[in-house]
Design a binder for these strands. Structure first.
Lengths: 124, 124
DNA sequence: CGGTATCCTCATTGATACTG
DNA sequence: CAGTATCAATGAGGATACCG
């Protein structure tokens, strides 16, 4: 029952989102504002579909538990797709859905800004 | 001593940031990934300089404590400027620094994506 | 007005160990 | 390989009350 929680965010979206304009920003932060979410999306944008451990290697310093939880979260929100690509040697592949892929501008903007910020601050 | 913590992130930036590329995304999430940070920046981008309580009103449902902490955080990271504009009736104004203002593309992207996401999911 | 000081609760993170 | 189950530690978020 851990890999199915389709009941928690359908109405939640409506609840924490009033009709103001800032809710769109709040919405985004709720969906990808967790510590590792943007990084995961970034990785999938860069490398395409990845297996669980491959993804784990890419991110480095994330634990299985947290990666698992994060992926489930992203899956529930329709941003990431989980596909079983092989049964015998059991293999899965995580990839971005269309909605997940559409995050590219956001991630890119964050990427670019982070780079500029680091240049600014740690210029010695 | 609460309004001065200039020692905590100068080298911290270097510590959690290796030389990989993903650190730029991680960097951004560390700086504005907290729950209210993007909203605060969004508000300041929209309305320009605001006093403490004015900002609090704009955000709605944020407590003084959290707003205070968040602003201090943003200040420490050089994204927000705090100016005392009047002593007699004590008044301050929070505004974005240049670096804070440069977050506009990021916030805009989040804004746009959140809007699209909401359209997609809650289209009935 | 513009905050700070406490204190509390819950969420997130994570280490470790184990499973099919 | 691809996870899950537990449990411990931390920390963020927030209610309340009070101060200059």
């Amino acid at each position: 029952m851990s890999r199915a929680s389709e009941d928690k965010d359908e109405e939640c979206v409506a609840s924490w989102c009033a009709d103001d304009d800032w809710c769109t920003v709040t919405c985004t932060t709720h969906l990808i504002g967790k510590k590792w979410h943007p990084v995961i999306v970034h990785r999938l944008l860069e490398h395409g579909p990845l297996g669980f451990n491959a993804l784990k290697e890419e991110i480095e310093s994330i634990s299985s538990t947290v990666l698992s939880n994060s992926l489930e979260d992203l899956e529930d929100n329709g941003l990431v797709n989980r596909a079983i690509v092989s049964e015998k040697p059991f293999r899965v592949e995580y990839s971005l859905t269309e909605q997940g892929t559409s995050l590219e501008p956001v991630i890119d903007a964050m990427d670019a800004w982070g780079e500029a910020y680091l240049r600014e601050t740690s210029r010695s």
